[in-house]
Design a protein around this nucleic acid. Sequence first.
DNA 1: GGTCCGTGTCAAGCGTGCTTGACGTCGAGT
DNA 2: ACTCGACGTCAAGCACGCTTGACACGGACC
Lengths: 63, 63
Amino acid sequence: MDNDVKELRVAAGLSQRELAEALSVSRQTVNSIETGRYDPSLPLAIAIARHFARTVEEIFHVD
Amino acid sequence: MDNDVKELRVAAGLSQRELAEALSVSRQTVNSIETGRYDPSLPLAIAIARHFARTVEEIFHVD
DNA sequence: GGTCCGTGTCAAGCGTGCTTGACGTCGAGT
DNA sequence: ACTCGACGTCAAGCACGCTTGACACGGACC
């Protein structure tokens, strides 16, 4: 599972902290997802997709 | 988070056991997801969506 | 030099996702 | 009455998702 969260966040001009606040999670969670430390939970993945107006499948890719 | 897994599975004429095998998870996992015991992980949610040729968002709904 | 901000990472702790193995119940078929 | 498949559920155990708090580093700006 890799993802395009970092690219989307940077393109939106947001810091990890700002995205974390928008998603109501910690900055470390955003960082961990971006750096591939672990996959988000399903509800968080859906929240991320909604935030960037994409589908889950467009952002998260099974290897 | 509720979901349409049970409806889709029944419509496809599959038992929980058969769906579990198709997804390479245990029968209890399929049952737990259908009965709302917990949400699937992101990779499993994507696998379920693919199996039924739907998007994740079409199957899993945030309350 | 000193002070930010943004990022990467660590540790400890808690709840959840998933496993195997097991048991009870119900309906269908014999 | 018996068996069998399908389903719901429990328990114990392990790995992961997420938290708070902390530390280190680089770049920008004074």
